[in-house]
Design a binder for these strands. Structure first.
Lengths: 362, 362
DNA sequence: TTTAGCACTCGATAATTTCAAGTGCTAAAA
DNA sequence: TTTTAGCACTTGAAATTATCGAGTGCTAAA
């Protein structure tokens, strides 16, 4: 691909860039005349026409029909984006704003992601996506059991990812405090560090033996553990600002938009797509570069958020192929950075956020 | 309103009913000829035309233009729905199915509602809505504190609604087990049964005094309590199957649909609407009966779910004005009933669901 | 009170025309 | 060799017109 880029003369690059940006702006095919006017180069529309004809032959542009201007092809967008990625800068002022917003809403990762999705949407005017990806191996690091009433108790579990989960468990028989204490002790001793598929029947039976007459507690309790593991494992996705998309004429085909919506809602395809990405930096999928069919007229920009080398979330933006890549790349970069700094930095965010004592430090 | 119904002759009722159902089915204006064919009455189209003209004058029907058939007005739908409400029956077979689906996904109310929303959507082919309404006064009934690492601990709270909530709290200084135990004790003693606005500064200061040298724990801990109360209080809404709506031509205006989507996403208007409803049975808002402007071309059917007299959730369906009220009323009724029976019945759902040992009771 | 018959209405669809933006190409200019 | 002005040509979008038929209201007879 970069080999091809070499072939482009500076003038072609400038024309391509101008055209892409004009099309992103207006959404309609761009003609030679327009480019002549909004371009630093001093040459006539005829010259530009010739260049455009060549750019089309090289695959960077597409002509919807003979008597129309030209539109960037996917290759054209790709070139534009690639030439952009190296150079997008951070406006530190905005970063601080994002930081503050996110910290105000601080909480567990789930809520941060949700807020971030809304943020991404409102800042870009496209659809924001926040994803908690499928994590293949969650384990528990600590158990605690609390009684609620005579038939119910709650299991509190701290996961290897550092999040806290609770499950309510109802039991036919009566629940005694003493039994619960033993249950917690037992789980802490036997189940910590085990992943879902390592909790096998023999282990469960062993637990039941150890519990003696209170063995009936084990089964529902273990089930809760399983459930929590699956919840975390399952991945989840939050969309916001879907309505923004409808402003763009590329989504005016109701049928098509409905399919897109359905796919987004069912989540699994996007989750797979994102989870399988190996690129830890910003990913940009332009049109048919995405394996998801209904997204072939859209572009998806996303970036994983890492903590200790593990992906704990993904923030992204979905919009028309002619999305404002410059802005989107920048926004996503800023947001993910903010989240990382909040999560990584072990600063007690609770207190800082509380009193607004944020001194601009990282 | 019921006075007006009296005025309708049996034949008019039958014609109205046939017309409404035909329009729900096909979405297009219904002519006298069609009604003549699909009607048990034996009279000519001319007679029906006369009746229809009268029905229009009475406000039950509307003519899009002179040379078209007729369409039910909101009053027409209202009459149809009202005459329906008394008589919709339960297909017990379906109830059992719903029960099983919900129990399989059993868990806290949040998850049940989410599942129910999906269920409502897939069963009706409209958009399913699940709402956790704004609850004005939540209190805590029990606190538990668990240490996570030297700077972090988790607060577990059981709310008056019976749900379990956790919050992670980070502290600048070090966290000692002993301090946490005292913190829990203190909170259980002083904060149980208090609503958010009853936790005043004097109380907090008293807590700080009681904690002595560990007073620095109080502030962030109390903040977590506040947060939990607000989270619960805040209300939340889950939509599913928005894409279904796009199948109906009444949502083909992209602009309008976008606005609807935006309103739905921002949640607050719908939350207000639902929270303020005083009708504990099934609510049916037809078109402009809803105070939300963008929903004036839609209908909203919803029903609160009660536990001990408190509304703990709302399940609903949003669709075009010509929604299939019969089916929707029935489905919503069934789903809410299922949820109620699961929540009310203190049966240990965990175990039943696990082994599929559901013997069709209830 | 019902019904057959008929003239009339009016939106939806199709067919047609108009318009202008934009192109490609050629020949002259740089 | 490269650039540019000029012009004929293409073609979709928008505007205009024609056609069609479902459905109506009304009248007069049953």
């Amino acid at each position: 691909m970069s080999a091809k880029n070499q072939e482009l003369s500076e003038r072609k690059k400038l024309i391509l860039k101008t055209l892409v940006e004009a099309h992103i702006e207006g959404g309609e095919p761009v003609g030679s005349k327009y480019i002549m006017q909004n371009n630093l180069l001093s040459c006539s529309s005829a010259t530009i026409r010739n260049e455009m004809a060549e750019l089309e032959q090289m695959g960077y542009l597409v002509q919807p029909h003979t008597s129309a201007g030209r539109v960037p092809s996917e290759l054209g967008y790709r070139f534009y984006v690639d030439s952009l990625v190296e150079q997008y800068a951070k406006t530190s002022r905005e970063v601080v704003q994002i930081n503050q917003l996110l910290k105000a809403k601080m909480a567990e990762i789930d809520q941060i992601l949700d807020t971030a999705s809304r943020l991404a949407s409102s800042m870009t005017n496209y659809t924001g996506i926040a994803i908690k990806p499928k994590a293949s191996s969650v384990t528990m690091t600590k158990f605690e059991v609390v009684s609620i009433d005579e038939h119910t108790f709650a299991m509190l579990m701290i996961t290897s990812a550092g999040t806290v989960k609770t499950k309510k468990v109802k039991i036919l028989g009566e629940v005694r405090e003493e039994s619960l204490r033993r249950l917690a002790e037992l789980f802490n001793g036997c189940l910590c560090g085990l992943s879902a598929d390592m909790i096998t029947l023999p282990i469960i039976m062993e637990l039941e033996n150890a519990m003696g007459e209170d063995a009936y507690l084990i089964n529902p309790a273990v089930k809760s553990v399983y459930e929590v593991m699956n919840e975390i494992d399952g991945g989840e996705m939050r969309l916001s600002g879907i309505n923004h998309l409808l402003k763009y004429p590329e989504y005016s085909d109701t049928q098509e938009f409905g399919q897109l919506l359905g796919t987004l809602e069912s989540q699994d395809e996007i989750l797979d797509l994102v989870s399988n990405s190996e690129n830890d930096d910003i990913n940009v999928l332009i049109g048919s570069e995405s394996p998801v069919k209904v997204m072939n007229n859209s572009s998806l920009v996303f970036k994983p958020i890492k903590k200790n080398g593990r992906t704990i979330g993904v923030i992204g933006v979905l919009g028309p192929r002619r999305m404002n890549y410059k802005q989107v790349l920048q926004t996503i970069g800023e947001i993910t950075e903010s989240i990382s700094s909040i999560i990584d930095g072990e600063a007690p965010i609770n207190e800082l956020a509380e009193k607004g004592e944020y001194h601009g430090g990282e």
